[in-house]
Design a protein around this nucleic acid. Structure first.
Lengths: 208, 208
DNA sequence: CAAGTCAGTGAACACTCGTACTCCGAACGG
DNA sequence: CCGTTCGGAGTACGAGTGTTCACTGACTTG
């Protein structure tokens, strides 16, 4: 009764569950979740419509699962990076690097996040918001341990963390819409924006 | 043959066209455009499905019309404000005020913009992107005429304008999702973020 | 090895959907 | 005033939708 017990049955169940998630992600590259049909997904996954209900109650529930698949794993990675090297804002740069690699490796996942962050399906919106709030808290915590923002209030740290996270999301979706040829330009502008925020951060307490 | 000739016929046509737009906007508060049905709209507008084709080719075309209805008018107002008082960044604050009032007066319109900015309908995405680019250019132009950013390159001005506009869009959708009770908190955080950007702006050339 | 669980099947239900017709009647231009 | 224009109504069609139901057969458990 170990929780990693790999019964043939449960393994196969997880396999088709993943097939449903993957098929949905492909379909969601050119439409949004609220217009995604249950039958459409099962057809692409090679399963009967009825089988869908063995795994998800709704297409909304499938969307929430996709959110966790995308941001849950990234969350773990960011946490590892933030705890890795003990000093300075080098950790933030490493975090950005990790995110960028993740986005590059799984574009469809992050297009989905950008699209559904303000999309028409309530539960999915809330799931994304919750995950992004967690990211903002993590970044805020990391910022608080830096010497440059030692005397910041917790609220301001959270504000700054949210600013970084929101900027990251915007950059991600902009990158995806720009395509490969416009990527360099987008990255340049995004870096400038980040620099401006960092400068503002350095002088925050001067003129608070 | 004046272009304002109000034939009874054309007046009525515009009336039902507006009825279609209004009905669509109401329906779009709880779903996104790609799942909006043609029949659904005409039913809510009190017209037959066939009548829809007299006004729009697609629901996508209706979406583009909604984009122009929302951002087109705001664009004109912003232009007026930016040309109004001749000095300092007071104009920017006035602009933000105008936008805030617009959002408060027509929440559904701006929820639509936030939702479809990265939504599943290509033409609508492009229409929104084009309008936002225009806003960024306008803001950049206004910033360039201020003494505080006299020596900025045109590219950096555009970067900063885009930063302001993106922040405005984020704030808008956050406001709408927070609801009336969370509004004050959202505004507070948004103001702090803006202040941080402004501080960064003030020291941009010091550490460029 | 027998009993039971359960992921997945296949058919059928009652819808909604977009679109193509024909047709009406009020507003329009000469 | 009369013929034309055209916004909108009405009908019909085929396709696709979400959901329910009884069922099967491979895996699991005692």
């Amino acid at each position: 009764m170990s929780h990693t017990a790999t019964g043939i049955r449960q393994t196969q169940k997880l396999r088709t569950r993943q097939a449903l998630l993957d098929a949905a992600l492909v379909l969601l590259e050119h439409q949004s979740l609220s217009s995604l049909g249950l039958r459409e997904v099962t057809r692409a996954a090679g399963v009967t419509p009825t089988a869908f209900y063995r795994h998800f109650e709704d297409t909304a529930a499938l969307g929430v699962a996709l959110v966790e698949e995308t941001l849950g794993s990234l969350h773990g990675l960011i946490g590892a990076v933030l705890a890795e090297t003990g000093d300075s804002e080098e950790r933030l740069d490493r975090s950005v690097e990790v995110i960028a690699r993740h986005v590059g490796a799984q574009p469809a996942h992050f297009r989905f996040i950008a699209r559904e962050q303000h999309g028409g399906v309530g539960p999915v919106r809330e799931a994304i918001a919750a995950q992004l709030r967690r990211f903002a808290e993590e970044v805020a915590c990391a910022l608080g341990q830096e010497p440059g923002s030692a005397d910041w209030s917790e609220e301001d740290l959270l504000m700054l963390g949210g600013l970084y996270v929101d900027h990251m999301v915007i950059t991600t979706s902009t990158l995806l819409e720009a395509g490969p040829e416009g990527e360099a330009e987008v990255v340049r502008v995004a870096r400038r924006r980040l620099r401006l925020v960092t400068i503002g951060r350095a002088h925050w307490l001067d003129e608070g």
